[in-house]
Structures are given as C-alpha cells and as structure tokens.
Amino acid sequence: MKVAQLQQSIREYAHAIGIDKIGFTTAAPFLELKNRLKRQQELGYQSGFEESDVEKRTEPTLLLDQAESIIAIAVAYPSKMDASPKGKKGERRGIFCRASWGMDYHVVLREKLQLLETFIATQVPDAKMRSMVDTGELVDRAVAERAGIGWSAKNCSIITPEFGSYVYLGEMITNIPFAPDTPMEDECKDCTLCLDACPTGALIQGGQLNAQRCIAFLTQSKKPIPEEFRAKIGNRIYGCDTCQTVCPKNKGKYNLHQEAFAPEPQLTKPLLTPMLKLTNRQFKESFGHMSGSWRGKNPIQRNAILALAHFKEEASVPLLAELLVSDPRPLIRGTTAWALGEIATAEAIEAVQQALQTEEDPGVRIELNNVLESEQRKC
C-alpha cells in the first residue's frame, strides 16, 4: 500500500475508533521549543512532573530509531455536566477539573493508540512505532500544533476549531514517512482574557506558564501549599479550569459525545467532609478510575480542607479539630490548623490552642502559632 493511501486509511480508522482529530507531522527536532524549555528551566517555571532532559523532549529521533513522522491525536472531553449537584451550608462540595471527569484519559487514549498501532502493523508489518500520552518525553502540545490539530493558545492549551481547548492529546512516533499536515494560524490575536483571569498570575505572558504558581499544579503537589495561594484555591480539589472557561473559543463547546468521559456528578463534585474520612482503599474504590486520583488521597484531602476554609464552613469544625490532633500526617494537620484559623469561630480557635500543647512537628507548630498570633492582632 502506498504511503498516501495508508495515511488516508489511518485517518478513517482513527475516526472509526473514536479519535476526534488526527494529524501528521515530521520527526524533525522542535528547535524553537528547545530554547523555550531551557529558558523555563532557568526561570524555575517547570512543575517537576515533566521529563527533565530537554533533548529527549525535543528530539524525536532520540526516542525511536529511524523516526520519520509523528501522528498526533486529539480526543474531546466534556465541558458541561448535567444534573450538577449543588452544595449548601453544612453540605459543601469540591470540584475536580473537567480533565478529570469520567475515565482516566491516559488509559482511554493509550487504548486508542494501541488500536492504531495494531492497524498500522497489519498494513506495514515492519513498521516501528512508539506511542505516548501526557507522561511521555515529547511535549504533546508542540506535536499537536505542528501536526495541525489546533493552535497553541495564550493559556498554554491547544485550541481546536471543533472542540475548543477541551481535548486530550497523544502521539505516535513512527518510521513511516507520512506527508505532514499544515499548522493552523493562531487565532488568539489580541485577546488576553485568560491571562487576566488567572487567579494566581501563573500565565506570565501568552504561551508562558509559571507552573509553580498554577493552581492545577498546586492542587497536585504533595507539599504544603504556600500561604499566598491557599485562599485562591477556592473549592477546587483537583486542577483548575479558569483559563479555559473564560476563553471565547470555548463558548458553546460542550463535547458530550465521548461516553468514557461522561462525568459522574457525585464524584466530580463530591461532598467535602466525607472525603476527609476516606481510607486509601475507599479512595481508590471511589476515585481510582479518574485521572485526578493519580497523586493519591493526601493532596485531595488537603485541598478539601482548604475548600472548607474557603466556605468558612462552621459545621466542619468538630471534624477538623479531631484531625488536628489525631491525623498522623503533618501535611493534613498543618493545613487543618490554617483552615481553623480562617473559620475562626471560638471553637475553632480553642482547638488550635489545645493542639499547640501536644503538637511536636515544627512545621505544624508554625501554622498553629500563626493562627494564634493572627487572632491576637485582631484584639
């Protein structure tokens, strides 16, 4: 089969297995990206989750011998949830970002790429292929941009005309010399809504992100969240959608057609206080199929405590007071101390005072003392 025919057959098969967009590009180095990544490292803007070797992130031939092309795919995910549960006083809810609704996208896209690999192998038995989704060395957005999937937007997402920026990305490096698709023109133009709306100023300029300030990163960190960001987390317990929801290109893009990503309302907007009582096993049983569970329950529970502080949920004080003295994790005790200081009822402050008498962890003691010093300044 000729390469052009194979390329068309791959496009048709991709759509048949639920891939929403597919594009092709060369395996040439991403030279401009290499310079940007090195600059990001120098500025300390990286999250730490990405591959540290810039050469591997920008040189496809280092990842697959005789690489000629890269196939980029995009699968849309929903931006709208029907029957969204409403929180209320005494029953506050958190929220997982849209990219964590339904099944873990890593699993879904890997399955589709595996099907694609199998299909190509039936046509070209000696084809070499290597696929990756999100956690691979290549920068998904850079590949998608060059393959014509969409343009690289100021909010550091790929925006597609059909689905907005609500798309998951993956790619496959291969030794087959496919004809490259044409990149799209940047349509952000002079719009700066995403930069203006970012709660923490993480979007430094169009297309440049300081991950250390990004709420999506902060909610995944296993460390205590710096105090300057805590109140800005709101009721987000995983991820952040602000720079997407304000984007005009996402208006009316609901993308409800992928069943695997259909949101489960009680899980995507869970009650906060029950989350604080979950064991590891219970957490995995309820949330383990979601991409937002990948860091385990500790960061999620910490974020749930911040959300209760955001709501100043007085009904949660007895539970928080119990966690403050009985939870074995300094991360949880320290966050709980801050939250009780934000709620600041007499019962909350009394719980902080009592905990200080027995707390031994230096970091938690700092949090406790900060609360009491803040209260003294109010007097």
Rank of each mutant, 00 (worst) to 15 (best):
P183S: 08
M184W: 13
E185N: 07
C188S: 06
C188H: 12
K189S: 08
C194L: 12
D196R: 15
C198A: 10
C198L: 02
G201C: 06
A202C: 01
G206C: 09
Q208H: 15
L209I: 12
L209R: 00
N210E: 11
A211E: 02
A211K: 03
I215W: 03
F217Y: 14
F217V: 02
L218E: 00
S221G: 09
K223D: 01
P226F: 15
E227A: 15
E228C: 14
R230K: 03
R230C: 07
A231D: 05
A231N: 07
I233H: 08
I233C: 08
G234C: 13
Y238F: 15
Y238S: 10
Y238K: 13
G239H: 08
G239F: 12
C240K: 09
T242F: 01
T242S: 06
T245D: 10
T245M: 07
V246K: 04
K249H: 15
G252Q: 06
G252T: 06
L256W: 02
Q258L: 04
Q258I: 09
E259D: 10
E264G: 01
P270Y: 13
L271Q: 13
L272T: 02
M275V: 04
L278F: 15
L278V: 05
T279W: 13
T279M: 09
R281Q: 10
Q282N: 09
F283G: 00
F283D: 00
K284I: 02
K284N: 02
S286W: 06
